[in-house]
Write a protein that binds this DNA or RNA. Structure first.
Length: 797
RNA sequence: GGGAGCUUAGCUCAGUUGGUAGAGCAUCUGCCUUACAAGCAGAGGGUCACAGGUUCGAGUCCUGUAGCUCCCACCA
């Protein structure tokens, strides 16, 4: 019934088309038993690599599992195609600079580019046999998404959860935009601690100060000393004169100062670090902007104006040395905050920005994090740890072009913000004007907010964005909490965090019950794969589909412990390939004895047939319990164990009865047909969530018609009950052990497995073994078996 | 400095409530056996990082130590 060879290249394509045509994975919103997945929308910023296939396959395995449990699975697909990663990709690929392009041209270029790339993304995922609904793929830049995102903004603004503040924010000079805490990476870098002299104006004494950022001397606004500092407390109230710039700044007492650090006196610049930002507020210090938005020194820096920060630092160090104002230097490495997208050192700059209040909701978010069921469980601790360390409200404005615009104008007269009517959404304030006059001063001319929103301000609404396909209600909580949010570990503090936060702010409930954290697929040497750079030697997904098949690629991806990174090693693919061949051969063999056979429970089932069915039940139970924890790799291991047991022990035993009913009887054959076809069906169904193509191929060759089902993937698992007969398992294992000992004897004596053995004697075995005498004799080519009492032993005579 | 994870066979890793160590790969030996030589059968190989503790019994629970990895804080 099955061909000798399985031609996966053409057959995988065939089934993918079949599933599409037959709408096998169609979600039914009316279904009583639903399973809702909040699929991560991949960022459109390069080429999909095996790392993506790794984590998305794990999601697909869960979706398929839920479907096999009889649920209607909502498995949407989306593209995160707005925001910085996309802009950076377009700038790089199209060789344009955003700053030198008109807003509209740049947006159009982004839209065109992402459109082309989405086709590639869909091809890679659907060729892997992903059961997501690509026909309803959402996009984070689509008008509908913009509408939802803008509505979210307006609602939260009206609830006073959003405000615009002119305060220090994290700034990337390379991307020239504000960024959020979650977008910051810390990187170890070498640096210099510079010990320099300030002068006390009143006494002419020198005051020693240590700094790693001497270029910010031009923005120094005060010097702090600790109030309990015996040596320096007397300086409080006096005036310090900064070196080189000779700016006079007050000396202020500040209990935050650590007397052990540096020299014990701190210069406060606006802003060298977060402490400076905090102190500027607390002591109401002036703000001196030493660094511009482009990352270059401002006029305040005098002769260093226009230089990049690092350049200026070097130059002023030389200048201070020249003037004898620098008395010591010390090399050190410290961790520097950088922008995760470009690696540029982050600055703190002041600019009006929009913030969503996070700090005052820390407790609620923390509690929500405790309620979510994280898999693996330790992901929860990472989440809570992040919430604990939260220091910034969520800055959601970006000084960029390609994103969701703020639905906001400012009165040209008084500056009062004016929000769009929700009935007008989505709006682009750059091209439209409000319908009403300013509520404060009555003026009717407005300036648009030209910033766009942080892409996470929109992505944090994916539970609403993706369910909108069903509800058409936009920002709505009908299906919230959803069942599952799957994503990789780097997103715990980002996407998971923001989604939980927004769901609480809007609806006061969790966005989903469960989170599943996957690891990363890393190159063979352990480096992270990149969308923008090719990782030398690492095959692409389309290459592994072609060489090993999509099923084998999926096998590699799903054969991992949850949350753990794995390396891309060719060996793993070879193992999967062997498994695929084995499934094919074993099925081909079993099916060859089922021609014309209609499954029915025979009057009598032989002992070893009962045994393999019991083995199946045991594995099924263990499999389900692993899947409950999303441990698909461990579930797969259990399944593989059963499958090899089925092949090596059961089929070897059953094949004699199948081949030779004239010797062993028709009943014995029927019993084997029943057990073999049943267990194989059960096994195929379990494998189907990992290897959807080959299992479909085999299912369609025999079982589909019998079960009256269009596809194995909507056929439900074969549940034969959960009461396990342990004694039966033990008895069957004993028979296998006897067979194994006889095989061992033949191996050690250089005999072929088919060589006959005249007689063996079995000592100390129970009645069960006798009932399997025919099977044992046949599989080992034994003529006579003698039974004796005494200690358990197998003796070849 | 705070949090988390890891350390088990030569390699990659399983080991769910504590009961004499498992798989795959690699190595070695044998076998064309009417599904499969991209196969089959068998063998060797581990004081479960270290030190204590609880227990009749610890890879598993507790404490501590060391090494590796990740996240956070540390820019005076």
């Amino acid at each position: 019934m099955l061909e000798k060879r399985y031609d996966f290249n053409t057959r995988e394509k065939h089934w993918q088309e079949y599933w599409r045509e037959q709408e096998i994975y169609k979600f039914n919103p009316e279904a009583k038993n639903r399973y809702m997945i909040d699929t991560p929308p991949p960022t459109i910023s390069g080429i999909i690599h095996l790392g993506h296939v790794f984590s998305y396959t794990q999601i697909d395995v869960i979706a398929r599992h839920q479907r096999m449990l009889g649920k209607s699975v909502f498995f949407p697909f989306g593209y995160d195609d707005n925001g910085l990663p996309t802009e950076r990709y377009v700038q790089r690929e199209k060789k344009v600079k955003m700053a030198e392009t008109s807003r509209q041209d740049f947006i159009n270029l982004c839209l065109d580019t992402t459109k082309q790339m989405k086709a590639n993304y869909e091809e890679v995922f659907s060729s892997a046999g992903h059961s997501a609904d690509f026909s309803h793929a959402y996009s984070s830049i689509s008008p509908r998404t913009q509408e939802i995102s803008q509505r979210s903004f307006i609602e939260l603004y009206n609830k006073s959860e959003i405000e615009r503040r002119n305060s220090a924010c994290l700034w990337c000079p390379e991307c020239r935009t504000a960024i959020a805490q979650s977008e910051v990476d810390t990187v170890e870098m070498p640096s210099l601690m510079n010990y320099i002299y300030f002068t006390i104006k009143e006494t002419g004494e020198k005051l020693r100060i240590a700094t790693t950022r001497p270029e910010l001397l031009c923005a120094c606004v005060c010097v702090f000393v600790h109030p309990d500092d015996n040596e320096r407390a007397n300086l409080v109230g006096k005036t310090a004169i900064s070196p080189y710039y000779n700016r006079e700044v007050p000396i202020i007492a500040n209990p935050d100062v650590d007397m052990e650090k540096g020299t014990g006196a701190v210069m406060c610049c606006t802003f060298g670090d977060e402490a400076d930002a905090k102190w500027q507020k607390e002591y109401n210090l002036p703000v001196l902007e030493g660094i511009g938005y482009n990352g270059r020194m401002t006029d305040l820096a005098g002769e260093f104006a226009g230089q990049k920060v690092r350049e200026a630092r070097e130059n002023i160090i030389n200048k201070l040395k020249e003037l004898g104002l620098l008395y010591d230097q010390q090399e050190l490495t410290h961790l520097v905050a950088t922008h995760e997208r470009c690696g540029t050192e982050v600055e703190l700059l002041i600019k009006p920005q929009w913030f969503i209040k996070m700090l005052e909701h820390k407790d609620e978010i923390y509690r929500a994090g405790e309620q979510v069921k994280w898999n693996p469980e330790y992901a929860k601790k990472r989440f809570l740890n992040w919430v604990d360390g939260l220091k910034w409200d969520w800055c959601i404005s970006r000084q960029r072009f390609f994103g969701v615009p703020f639905p906001v104008w400012y009165c040209a007269e008084c500056g009062e913000p004016m929000l769009a009517d929700t009935s007008d959404l989505p709006v682009d304030p750059s091209t439209t004007q409000p319908h009403k006059p300013c509520s404060k001063c009555g003026y009717t001319h407005f300036n648009p907010e030209t910033d766009v929103m942080d892409t996470w301000a929109t992505s944090s609404l994916t539970p609403q964005i993706c369910t909108d396909v069903i509800t058409n209600k936009g920002l709505d909580d009908t299906y919230i909490p959803m069942d599952l949010r799957p994503n990789a570990h780097e997103n715990i503090r980002v996407w998971d965090f923001y989604t939980i936060a927004k769901s609480l702010l809007h609806f006061g409930k969790l966005p989903w019950h469960d989170v599943m954290i996957s690891g990363w697929g890393l190159s063979a040497t352990g480096t992270k794969l990149s969308k923008s750079k090719s990782s030398g030697g690492t095959p692409t997904p389309l290459e592994t589909y072609k060489k090993y098949s999509a099923d084998v690629t999926r096998y590699w991806a799903s054969n991992a412990s949850l949350g753990k990174d794995v390396y891309i090693k060719e060996e793993e693919f070879k193992n999967g390939f062997k498994l695929m061949q084995k499934i094919w051969n074993a099925s081909r063999f079993v099916l060859s004895f089922l021609e014309g056979y209609t499954p029915h429970k025979p009057a009598e089932i032989l002992p070893m047939d009962k045994w393999i069915i019991e083995e199946y039940k045991k594995t099924f139970k263990a499999f389900m319990s692993y899947m409950d924890r999303y441990e698909m790799g461990l579930a797969l291991n259990e399944l593989e164990q059963l499958f090899w047991n089925f092949c090596d022990n059961y089929i070897e035993i059953a094949k004699n009865r199948l081949y030779k009913p004239e010797i062993y009887g028709e009943q014995a054959k029927e019993s084997a047909q029943y057990a073999a076809s049943t267990v194989l069906l059960g096994i195929l169904k379990l494998f189907s969530i990992y290897m959807p193509h080959i299992t479909e191929e085999i299912y369609q060759a025999y079982y589909a018609e019998i079960e009256g089902c269009k596809s194995i993937h909507i056929s439900n698992y074969l549940d034969l009950g959960s009461n396990i007969d342990e004694q039966l398992l033990k008895n069957g294992a004993e028979v296998c052990d006897i067979v194994s000992q006889v095989r061992g004897y033949k191996s050690q004596n250089n005999l072929s497995m088919k060589d006959e053995i005249a007689a063996i004697s079995l000592a100390g075995y129970n009645e069960f073994v006798r009932t399997c005498e025919d099977d044992i004799k046949a599989v080992c080519s034994i003529q006579t078996i003698n039974y004796t009492d005494g200690e358990k032993a197998v003796t070849i005579e």
